[in-house]
Design a protein around this nucleic acid. Structure first.
Lengths: 324, 324
DNA sequence: TTGAAAGCGCTAACAA
DNA sequence: TTGTTAGCGCTTTCAA
């Protein structure tokens, strides 16, 4: 592996001049520049990024941490982030936390170790205070809302999503609705739950304790919920489900048990994943990739010491299909 | 940000000793070691990875390149890779190629630039010769089969998958089968196609040109195929589809058009994604995460100059459901 | 327009 | 068991 010293020798210039050529610095005479290029070609020169990073004190790498990489929401988020990283010439380090706060903390270490220039929190279970502590001196952007006053975030208004779902169901005459969410600790989970109960009260709906489910992530969870609901003496007439996967499982098991959808039970999902299209699921669509792209945009500004808006809200949309 | 020089001063030792403490080197007296730890604590010392990487000439980062991050197969692959990386204390850089050879080449550059220690090809459209060229002096592992004699790879026998599907269909009396695959250039695509035609001949089945589809990736593609098939005067009685998503779209549109599955058309998918479970799709299951984990294992051995087997085959399994 | 020289923060061969 | 010293490959003042 050749280095700038060798290039400099062969091109009969100083290492500095080679560095200038490398960095497209203006003050280099044409023939010297050519000589350097020639030498680089002959020696198959490849710059060593670690050396550059060490010198410059940055890496051009961003990190993203998500609970589960293969979850459709997060893989789309990563995709959006990845595409925008490519635009800004960042590489992307991906880390899976499994919602384990210890793992999240580990990832912050990478930031501190200067292995990455900035960090995107796909979803975090750390307390606001902890994240804020890091956000004070590190470049962090979150993809969930929070009440921090220093952490920039991009997010959709999940409360509004719940409202869209409830309004839509009420229009169709429903008064008895259940709720099913994933991680109740996460920002998203908290918001959805609070918002759900808020509107239950506001509209004076007949909510019941047994119609609330949390920690539901998979199709099989959805099927369990179906069996659970069927057992209940008084069922809700509609379920709002925080994930299309779970909603699809619910749908599937209900149909298996000969219940009609939406007549016996209406279902609203979240995310508009492919599976929602196939099962004709009414769902709340989120602009996931846009979310990711915006996060990179903000992080890049943060890295360049620019002021970024803390709160960046994206719109949700209800997609009505046959399940309601 | 403090560095080892400051730590050394404060602990009254040399930089070397600090480095030894950092690297758990045995020859350090207990009290000096304690003094160093004390100093590190007081100065909130955090090692600079770039400096370490530069010194050591490696980064402890692996890279993976996939056509599309949000595709269920690849997001599961990344998940498996990520989990194993965590075991071996590697970070993971993720890159999306969109099947663009230029982008793949860019990623090889990162390897050359020593930004990563090794590279996993999730799927590549580069010629074998090109990949081999890199594999000669770089650490590369592929997740597709190839006929290279230097590139280590982990893969499932897609030919066998096709055979499983065809045998299963023949048992159910099918003689007229169509094939639908994704990228026909990729190793997977090539193998599936060749194998399909091989068995068509071997079993003397009535294959027709119009029953072959490629470049099919989405649910909507599947729906198009359904409409296309319906138009045909002589339809196949079964379709083998290289992706559950496409298969689900096919299923969905056929059902919409009042065709019965499997009576009017049987369908076999690939991957056993959640969507296959919901649509009761017979499918070929691949051990995706295990594939990813093995790839990391091999790459780690490669990095440590150990000899690795070139060909690492994983078994496939047919999961019979109601679509056949 | 060019080059010398001093870092960036750490590791590791060598000597003591 | 410890320290000295010379790098790793590049950037960036500063002076010419």
């Amino acid at each position: 592996m050749s280095n700038i010293t060798e290039i400099a020798k062969r091109a009969n210039v100083s290492r500095t001049t080679v560095s200038r050529v490398l960095n497209h610095h203006p003050y280099v005479k044409h023939d010297k520049r050519e000589a350097v290029f020639q030498a680089m070609k002959e020696l198959h020169y490849v710059p060593n990024l670690n050396a550059i990073n060490l010198s410059r004190g940055r890496t051009n790498v961003l990190g993203v941490i998500v609970p589960k990489i293969s979850h459709p929401f997060f893989s789309s988020l990563i995709e959006g982030i990845g595409e925008e990283c490519h635009q800004f010439d960042y590489s992307l380090l991906v880390y899976q936390s499994n919602n384990d706060p210890k793992k999240e903390l580990q990832f912050f270490d990478k930031l501190k170790h200067q292995q990455i220039d900035g960090l995107i929190l796909g979803s975090s279970v750390l307390p606001t205070a902890t994240v804020d502590h890091f956000a004070q001196y590190l470049n962090v952007v979150s993809c969930e809302n929070s009440n921090s006053n220093i952490l920039p975030r991009v997010y959709v208004n999940h409360g509004h999503g719940i409202q869209l779902a409830i309004d839509h169901l009420r229009e169709r005459g429903h008064q008895k609705m259940g709720l099913c969410i994933g991680n109740p600790q996460s920002g998203v989970g908290v918001t959805r739950r609070e918002s759900f109960f808020h509107f239950q009260e506001l509209y004076e709906l007949n909510w019941q304790e047994e119609w609330y489910f949390s920690e539901q992530y998979t199709i099989d969870h959805g099927r369990e919920i179906a069996r659970n609901l069927i057992e209940q003496k008084e069922r809700p007439t509609a379920m709002i489900v925080g994930s299309d996967q779970v909603a699809a499982g619910l749908y599937y098991e209900l149909a298996n048990q000969e219940l009609r959808i939406p007549e016996d039970l209406a279902i609203v999902g979240f995310d508009n994943q492919p599976i929602a299209q196939i099962t004709e699921l009414t769902t709340i669509q989120q602009p996931v990739k846009e979310l990711g792209k915006k996060a990179v945009f903000l992080l890049n500004n943060l890295i360049h010491k620019q002021i970024v808006p803390l709160s960046n809200l994206f719109d949700l949309q209800l997609i009505a299909r046959k399940s309601t």
